[in-house]
Nucleic acid binder design. Structure first.
Lengths: 234, 234
DNA sequence: TTCGGGTTTTGACTTAAGTCAAAGGTAAAC
DNA sequence: GTTTACCTTTGACTTAAGTCAAAACCCGAA
């Protein structure tokens, strides 16, 4: 049931049953396959999205085709809420665009589109959801801050090491003992996320492996010396 | 009068006179000179700031001392609000830290410190201010998105050209005819803001001048060929 | 099982931008 | 006016990371 799902989405967690019902009515479900575009940054803004299943990348492209990934969105997370609040108070404008591109990077990526106008009404009448929204934005601002810090103050090796450690931390919270992660994205995408290119990522992983900090087998990365990997990350 | 000033601060623009009065009571005014630290990212979070006069840089430092500027904060703007909303709902924690460093970069930089605990109470009782807060965050997210895009997808020349054009746009909104801007920060700081170093910035400005797109005289930059400068920026 | 697409790795080379060191400038301080 | 401290520029050199091209790998579809 959709409304059961929505309850577990952070920004909707304060809503009453009837509000959830209302939300369910306005939401439109869509399904995408790997490589499908969800929206371009040139398109008029319709509303924001909630991921049900799969994985979505939010990215920008340079004039000559280089790509940089800003966020990777997994189930229960929202994306493209920012334009909702541009000129809040004023009338909602048709001229709003999406702030970046979004592409599904797994098959069967299911999302809900929450149309902007209707959601805005719901928002006006419910201050709890507004607080959640601010918290969500705060978290994202932290993330972007961190992202910029990594990109500007660290070299590729540090970024790769840092990424592996962060993934490991996430995984360990959920799972068992040994330090082992599995990438859920392609190395091309990982490179674009870390602000580099596949060749350099490949060489960097190899270097860390040669220095006996990690062991790479396809999408599986085992950390063999976490101490030194942590040193390499700062 | 402080409350007259506060009215012109975007996030407080919806407050009633008595709420403004309340805010005035809890705010603490501080004055800094050029080079003074307002806070370090290692300090416990006390609250957020509103700039009254002067200029503040929000920045991160790498282990080996390189600096990157995330934001430049001018009068009527706020900074360091993000930690207010970490774990909102839960009790406010003493363990929160500032997300980055802040330093005054002009003499007589006057700011108001709005203590977190008291402001949170005010926030609970007023949903209008919450909406403003989300809008403010949305704007900042846009800014950081743009910043990342510049840093990752453009070379230094494009970033410098883009910066000059953006400044020019700001200036032209207020002023008169010809395309001329005046830097309000040192070139060292500008370099740190554009994700490069002073030497490279200097050479880049010189290059753009040699190519007859701009004319640099100390802190004054005149745009002599805006068409070509725009081409150089993308 | 082979084909054909995309993905990943490797090697050789280039280059944008950083480092280091020194010299000019500028402006406030003495 | 001279000193001092910082800011800015210039020159010579280094290097991390990108480009280009090709090979190897991997995997699903025919």
């Amino acid at each position: 049931m959709i409304s059961d799902f929505l309850k577990k989405v952070y920004i909707f967690s304060g809503l009453s049953d009837e509000e959830l019902e209302r939300l369910t009515k306005i939401a439109r479900q869509k399904t995408f396959n790997k490589g499908d575009i969800i929206f371009f940054d040139t398109e008029p803004y319709l509303g924001f999205y909630v991921t049900i299943t799969g994985l979505t990348k939010i990215y920008k492209i340079s004039k000559d085709g280089r790509e940089h990934i800003l966020h990777l969105i997994s189930p229960f997370n929202t994306f493209a809420e920012v334009p909702l609040f541009e000129n809040f108070g004023e009338e909602f404008e048709d001229s709003f665009r999406y702030p970046a591109n979004a592409m599904a990077i797994e098959d069967d990526t299911r999302v809900l589109l929450i149309p902007a106008r209707q959601f805005r009404e719901l928002l006006e009448s419910n201050s709890k959801i507004c607080i959640k929204m601010v918290s969500g934005f705060a978290k994202r601002l932290r993330h972007l801050n961190h992202h910029i810090e990594e990109l500007t103050l660290k070299d590729v090796t540090k970024r790769v090491a840092g990424f592996i450690l962060a993934e490991n931390k996430k995984a360990n919270q959920l799972q068992n003992g040994l330090h082992k992660i599995t990438l859920n994205i392609s190395k091309n995408d990982l490179a674009a996320y870390l602000g580099t290119i596949p060749e350099t990522l490949s060489r960097t992983l190899k270097k860390l492996q040669d220095e006996a900090m990690i062991n790479v087998e396809g999408k599986n990365i085992e950390i063999t010396d976490i101490e030194r990997l942590m040193d390499a990350a700062v």
